[in-house]
């Protein structure tokens, strides 16, 4: 779980959701708003998640801190 290839799984999920949004949008004069808003929202959220995930995929720096208690580390 959550390996590097997850980024493509996520993409697939978003594509499926977007296609579903396209076809399931209620048919009315607001159809275009449903379609555009849902697909844009999915894309934005996916992009944000992908950026966050990719930024941590091959990190260049490691977390560092010196205020950890012994009990915490050995538990």
């Amino acid at each position: 779980m959550a390996q590097g290839y997850s980024i493509f799984i996520g993409l697939l999920v978003i594509v499926v959701l977007s296609v579903a949004a396209w076809f399931l949008a209620p048919k009315s004069e607001n159809q275009i708003i449903w379609r555009s808003s849902l697909i844009l929202a999915f894309s934005c959220c996916y992009l944000m998640w992908a950026i966050t995930f990719l930024a941590q995929l091959h990190p260049l720096i490691e977390p560092r801190r010196s205020d950890l208690r012994k009990e915490y580390l050995h538990s």
Partner: peptide, 26 residues
């Protein structure tokens, strides 16, 4: 001072920012 180490299995924090960064010096 302590430094964290990535795991070897290729596992990455799946959703959002890894909580281990919270409160670290960097």
């Amino acid at each position: 001072p302590l430094v964290a180490e990535l795991n070897d299995s290729g596992y990455r924090y799946p959703f959002g920012l890894d909580w281990i960064w919270h409160g670290t010096e960097n």
